[in-house]
Design a protein around this nucleic acid. Structure first.
Length: 806
RNA sequence: GCCGGUGUGAUGGAAUGGUAGACGUAGCGGAUUCAAAAUCCGCCGGGGGCAACUCCGUGUGGGUUCGAGUCCCACCACCGGCACCA
């Protein structure tokens, strides 16, 4: 019989679908296990090989855990709102809902084709009104708690998408999605107060089993820094509050810098306090017109303007110091104003040199501060020229000055974060409508919860507008409504939610996907929470992963979900590169389509190869030749089935290898070392070829291989008549006996003075004396020990003996 | 600049401080075949030697250890994240 994957694979896929083999219930005697992969954005290109790596990996884990006796939830869905669909719809004049529907159909077919063990009764789609009803509901709860607010501020504006972006969506000054330049635009936007959760988002990482680089990247992004806020006085009477991480250097503050957008500057200009108003206004205008890229350009010359007519007063010594405006001070961080200590800060030093400001050393221990700033914060620095702080180390001076500031009422300890509130509105069509109404009399009002879902209206044109308004704004029938509060005329919000809204809570919906009363029932949430293991891409670390942790914490605070954190464990896969090690792209012509691979080699080969390709966490490049190697392996397994001995016992020569492999494959799957798990199975098959293979040997092999190559294993399982107790995927993982993982005789390395000289074969667990005696009997060893005294021996049981001879 | 990671044959990659290169590709030799494909068997880090064998070898230089790819120190290269964040 030939291994005809083209017939076998659809046969089993059909059976699994019809019998709902992988459906799971929200209750069980078994322990629960919730395995999650990031749901795809159903693009027109279909499933990418990049998707198959995490999906296959978690499918292997899910299948293995079922065999371990868990009640496994392994769901799939579609994150279908978003710009590419909208852009495709515009270009081809097809409704985005239709495009989405077709793409989802294609994705579903492909996911079935790969034999994934998803519970298909729990599929969700973020564009389904029954789903986004609850996305809107969560937004309303955020609004009720004051965590959603609308405000006018400078925001990131993508010049190509014609849409605002969150900070997280701007990568190196350009749009994360399309690569177009991002500029600052003053716009009124819905914002979510993620900053209120900054500290908890850091602290709660400690108890989670996330890979370290995810934790550090999130901490980096949140960017906590501790210091103090200090109030300086202006000679015109106003308070100027600054944030500093180095309050110890306060005596060295010789000037101040405000961001060009700072409110005080506007005030001084309006009240005519500034003698150089024209220069100041010109500088403000120049700063405003700069793109993010220009503003953050590396090693840029410092620029600025000194305010003529107003000075600051250093509160520790009463000195009058000049005030500048400069774009190296950001309006959106801290208070938008700094005290400048050029002797101990590189940026301030550079600015001071250019503008001729005074540089006073207040921390000794470095080089001449006139030549370079001394920025060390450790014990090497001793305070000088600082009155009561003199003689203290930097570390000791900080609490002393902070306490002093607090006592005098001119400052306090303060923590700042780089994290900004989440800009939550988009001027586009294909997203969840924001369920808010604006009334001239009552301001912003939420629509009543019983009116949800607020449906996305049909429009004729989805084109984004150049004036920065959503396409829906032209739909006057929809826009004009009545105020839920006073009943008077009012207008709906026409911006929609960002792409990240639907994915911020989707894992909860899988727990109870058809619930019309709540986003999920309390019983379902209690049973399945939290997600036990979530695998996804590193590119989502400071986007989806952070956003969904924030939403989950909010839902926890209002009593909707039972756990503080959504995901207990987070792992991440490396990218799949093209044949030459370059990123796959249409322009390079190195894109691998899973459909082609499955057609040529079958899904089991595709699955096995994508797991064997290399270290799961690292990038790996595709190799057509190596795919053939995996096909060859599966063929060898198949062909072996025709030469089995009848016994259901293990063949003695294979026994210890089988026990060892059972342990290794199980451990490797849990550790995501899929490549070595498959290597171990290959080695075992090589043993079977060499030693012969019994039905019993083969049965265990099929069970171990079934998570990787489920179709072929089911077929063989059936053909060989093992199926009385159900399919292979429904069996228990084979048991191993630790004592049998070691053969009766072991080969041991013999070193003389640390150098390998020979190997000997001895009975397992031989004691030191026996091993040493056997080693000394070896002529190759004798060559190096002859005429010397054995000073010491080191034994590593069953592995190695080292003879120290002098 | 700060944080994290990685450096091993021709190649993808293996190695709880204990026989470096498992397993797979490619390559070479053989069997089978009219021939090829497929399949099966063998070889496959470098130098020296007919051989037995021997010396060298995990980015570089030191160190700890009976023993280091693995631990420590310094450096080099590359990759990823953050970055005028006060």
């Amino acid at each position: 019989m030939k291994y005809d994957f083209a017939a076998i694979e659809p046969k089993w896929q059909k059976k699994w679908a019809e019998e709902k083999t992988f459906r799971c219930e929200n209750h069980s005697e078994k322990p629960k296990f919730y395995a999650l992969v990031e749901f795809p954005y159903p693009s027109g290109q279909g499933l990418h090989v990049g998707h198959t790596r995490p999906y296959t990996a978690m499918d292997v884990v899910a299948r293995k855990r079922r065999m371990d006796g868990y009640n496994v939830l392994f769901p799939m869905g579609y994150d279908a709102f978003g710009l590419p669909t909208e852009n495709y719809a515009i270009k081809n004049h097809i409704h985005p809902a239709k495009v989405t529907h077709d793409n989802i159909e294609n994705f579903t077919k492909q996911l079935h084709m790969l034999g994934y063990s998803f519970d298909w009764d729990r599929v969700i789609n973020t564009t389904d009104p029954a789903y986004y009803k609850w996305t809107q509901w969560i937004f309303l709860q955020l609004w009720k708690k004051g965590l959603a607010y609308k405000t006018t501020m400078p925001v990131n504006w993508c010049t190509s998408c014609k849409c605002v972006l969150a900070n997280e969506e701007v990568v190196e000054g350009v749009c994360e999605r399309c690569g177009a330049p991002v500029v600052r635009k003053e716009k009124s936007q819905w914002m979510l107060k993620i900053t209120e959760y900054a500290q908890r988002l850091i602290d709660d990482l400690d108890d989670l089993d996330f890979i370290e680089r995810v934790k550090t990247q999130q901490k980096n992004w949140i960017g906590r820094s501790t210091g103090a806020e200090v109030t300086f006085k202006a000679t015109t009477g106003e308070d100027i509050v600054v944030f500093t991480t180095r309050p110890d250097t306060l005596f060295g503050a010789t000037y101040m810098v405000l961001s060009p957008e700072h409110a005080l500057v506007k005030g001084w200009l309006e009240s005519g306090k500034l003698n150089n108003a024209d220069a100041v206004k010109a500088y403000q205008a120049a700063a405003a017109s700069k793109s993010d890229l220009e503003r953050t350009e590396l090693n840029k010359e410092k620029t600025g303007v000194c305010l003529d007519g107003v000075k600051g007063i250093n509160p520790v010594n009463g000195k009058e110091i000049p005030i500048f405006i400069s774009d190296y001070v950001l309006a959106t961080y801290g208070t938008g104003a700094i005290m400048a200590v050029p002797a101990h800060d590189d940026r301030d030093w550079e600015f001071a040199k250019k503008f001729g400001c005074e540089i006073i050393e207040v921390v000794s221990g470095g080089e001449d501060v006139q030549k370079a700033a001394f920025t060390a914060k450790d014990e090497t620095g001793i305070l000088v020229n600082s009155d009561f702080l003199d003689g203290l180390t930097v570390k000791d001076a900080i609490p002393v000055i902070t306490k002093w500031l607090e006592e005098k009422g001119i400052g306090e300890a303060k923590v700042n974060y780089k994290l900004r509130d989440w800009v939550f509105s988009r001027q586009r069509y294909w997203g969840e409508p924001i369920p808010m109404v604006y009334c001239e009399k009552c301001g912003w009002q939420p629509i009543s919860e019983d009116q949800l879902p607020l449906l996305l209206p049909d429009v004729d044109s989805y084109e984004p507008t150049d004036d920065g308004e959503s396409p829906i704004s032209k739909m006057t029938d929809w826009v004009n409504t009545t105020c839920p509060h006073c009943g008077g005329p009012a207008k709906r919000e026409t911006d929609t939610m960002p792409q990240w809204a639907g994915s911020s809570w989707y894992f909860l919906r899988y727990m109870d996907p058809h619930n019309s009363e709540a986003l999920a029932s309390k019983e379902a949430l209690d049973y399945w929470s939290p997600v036990d293991w979530y695998n996804g891409g590193m590119e989502h670390t400071t986007l989806h992963l952070l956003y969904s942790r924030f939403w989950h914490k909010f839902l926890y605070d209002i009593g909707v979900v039972p756990t503080k954190e959504p995901y207990q464990k987070r792992t991440s896969h490396g990218m799949i590169l093209g044949e030459g090690g370059e990123k796959m792209s249409k322009s390079r012509g190195n894109v691998v389509n899973p459909n082609d691979v499955v057609a040529q080699y079958g899904a089991d080969t595709m699955r096995t190869y994508i797991m064997f390709i290399g270290d799961f966490e690292k990038a790996a490049s595709w190799s057509d030749n190596a795919v053939k190697g995996c096909k060859r392996f599966l063929d060898r397994v198949w062909n072996l089935s025709e030469n089995l001995t009848d016994s259901l016992e293990y063949t003695p020569a294979n026994e210890s290898a089988i026990h060892k492999t059972i342990k290794k494959v199980a451990d490797d799957i849990e550790a995501m070392k899929f490549n070595t798990a498959i290597a171990a199975l290959m080695a075992l098959v090589n043993d079977f070829y060499a030693n012969g293979c019994s039905k019993g040997d083969y049965k265990t092999l099929l069970l171990m291989l079934s998570p990787f190559a489920p179709h072929m294993c089911e077929e063989l399982w059936e053909t060989l008549g093992f199926n009385a107790a159900g399919m292979a995927c429904q069996q228990a993982w084979p048991a191993y006996d630790e004592s049998k993982t070691v053969a009766a005789e072991v080969q041991m390395a013999v070193q003389v003075c640390g150098k390998l000289r020979s190997t000997i074969t001895v009975p397992v667990d031989s004691d030191e004396a026996a091993v040493v005696a056997a080693a000394l009997a070896d002529p190759k060893v004798q060559k190096f020990t002859e005429g010397k005294n054995l000073v010491k021996t080191i034994l590593v049981p069953n592995k190695l003996v080292n003879l120290i001879a002098k």
